[in-house]
Design a protein around this nucleic acid. Structure first.
Lengths: 352, 352
DNA sequence: TTGAAAGCGATACCAC
DNA sequence: GTGGTATCGCTTTCAA
């Protein structure tokens, strides 16, 4: 492959001149022609590695997500990449497949590859670990958290107003006559799951419906095992298909099953819908139901499902915008948490 | 941030010794201790940019796909990454969002970033363009194509036996009594779409069912517009939701609609299922139906859908294995096309 | 505007 | 086993 040196020889000009021109500097027009010709003839392409070594910038950002198998992150990434691209950055995506070690490894590799910034949908990583990564290279590398926050880690975050998302969902169920409402949430150490749980509790409380004693977020109690209480209206899953499937079945096998159910992410919604189908339960008719994220799905089943839709594109865009500002050096700004509103596709039918 | 130089000073050893040790060389045990201590104390991390500049290897591979919003590529990438990781490589994923220019740009950026290999699910890029990219850096960079091949581009490819996938699907429909079978395929310049179309035609032919005159692959005719024939049993979509939705409706509005339908990718299957639902057509009962990829879906609707499932994980794994061999320098091997079998989840009910 | 030269952080050859 | 040093490809100061 040809280097800038080859171009220099071919064009009969110095390295400095070539470099300057290639980086947008001013060069006499006849020299410009010579360089263009040389570049063309040699098929020269800059070696970004070498450039980065010198400039300390790679014009790349790393995007780290727990999985690429659900549409949620796919569309977020799409919007994010588009935003970054307009400013000359490209994004490299890594999935850690819900694996604790892999999450950390991906972050480190990205960091060692000198990305200029990181967008992370975190799961297991701790504030301390993230701080180490953020400070590994010279000055603090910009990190933007999406979807989930991390307790004790100060940075910019773009999240959904999870509390009001479930609050609204549960409120609708209450308004249509339900009093005995179950919820399937995610692991309590994930911020989204915790917040969604709180929204559920608050809605019940506001409407004077007693909340199960154990239906409290982990920060306020020792509840953490999903197998804590087989009769609780709050069941804690793992945000995966199997959890939704299994926990819907558990609900239905209670002595006093709920009359309505709220399921709080994509995979668990798919699992719950599948389980319901296999039990010949028609969601939205036999029991009230609100799912999360699976927007395509709600058009396909009868009756249509109520679904909380999260603004994934907006989330990606906002994350990109903030990251761009940080990478441009706006360090004096306070760190911010952007909280986006979700949208409830409401198809709840009033009871009896 | 600290460099190898700092480690050298801190440990009181030469650069060469540090570098050697850090790369697995032999060093006296007391020195080993000193170095470990220095690395720990300084929080030293190798600068991969600098290393790559010297070694000409980045230990990264670029993965380029048309979208991250369908599970198909997500699970392929997962298996691919896992395979690569066992050999010390990490993968950086880029989506081009079905955009022609972006596809090329992503490939170029990856190439300029000196990835050691590329896995590509191609759509628009030409053989000439790919060749240029492959040869841009020194010796030929390993490129493995997944899912789709490119006419005239010689390389390793992992694809599905698309022809027999649709052949099998259509055969089942024929066996259950259908004679008038429609198909919704993708753009004819995508190899998978072309092959799926051929499988359809061959099945009809083998069973003595007349094929619409215009139901021919693009290589054999000028057919390319999806609006070519409003009454054809072959309708050409764009592999997106909207195509499936619109073309199912078109089929149903024909004077003589098909009695069975085969839809040949994920998004179009979702679109078709949605459209059918809105028309109150029960797929699998009112008309025969086989979809593609949407495996979750087939458990959720009644009656369960017949679906062609593609071995996405295996595809990613195989792609990784071949790429690893190429990156290890096995250049003498012939380029190969690995053709994986798909699996038909058959729930077709025999016609009354 | 142009060019000579230093240096980014690491590796690897070669002499000791 | 250890260390001095040239070098990877590029940017950037500074002097001309």
């Amino acid at each position: 492959m040809s280097t800038i040196k080859d171009v220099s020889k071919y064009a009969g000009l110095s390295l400095a001149t070539i470099s300057k021109y290639l980086n947008g500097g001013n060069v006499r027009s006849d020299n410009r022609r010579k360089i263009d010709e040389a570049v063309e003839a040699l098929g020269y392409r800059v070696n970004r590695n070498a450039r980065s070594l010198k400039t300390n910038r790679t014009m790349t950002v790393g995007v780290v997500v727990p999985t690429l198998s659900i549409p949620f992150f796919g569309s977020m990434i799409s919007a994010l990449d588009q935003t970054l691209r307009t400013n000359g950055y490209t994004s490299f995506v890594c999935s850690y497949d819900f694996d604790r070690d892999l999450e950390l490894e991906k972050l480190r590799v990205l960091c060692n590859n000198n990305v200029d910034g990181i967008v992370l949908a975190a799961q297991y990583v701790s504030a301390a670990e993230l701080n180490e990564i953020r400070n590994a290279r010279g000055q603090q590398m910009p990190v933007v958290l999406v979807d989930r926050t991390i307790a004790g880690f100060v940075c910019d975050s773009i999240v959904i107003d999870n509390l009001n998302a479930t609050y609204g969902a549960v409120e609708q169920l209450i308004n249509s006559g339900h009093r005995r409402i179950g919820i399937i949430v995610g692991p309590m150490d994930i911020s989204t799951a915790n917040e969604r749980m709180i929204g559920y509790r608050r809605a019940l409380k506001d409407y004077g419906i007693p909340v199960d004693a154990d239906a409290v977020p982990v920060s306020e109690s020792s509840l953490s095992s999903e197998d804590g209480n087989f009769n609780s209206m709050v069941q804690i899953g793992k945000y995966d298909f199997e959890s939704g499937y299994r926990l819907l079945n558990r609900f239905m096998e209670m002595e006093q099953p709920p009359t309505a159910l709220c399921v709080t992410n994509y995979d668990m919604t798919m699992g719950a819908v599948t389980a319901a189908h296999e039990r010949n339960i028609v969601l939205g008719r036999d029991i009230g139901f609100v799912g999360f994220d699976a927007v395509d799905l709600c058009r396909i089943v009868t009756p249509p499902l109520s679904i909380v839709e999260q603004p994934t594109m907006l989330m990606g865009q906002r994350a990109g915008e903030i990251l761009l500002r940080r990478m441009a050096g706006e360090t004096q700004e306070y760190h911010q948490i952007v909280r986006l509103k979700s949208h409830l596709h409401n198809r709840i039918v009033t009871l009896g």
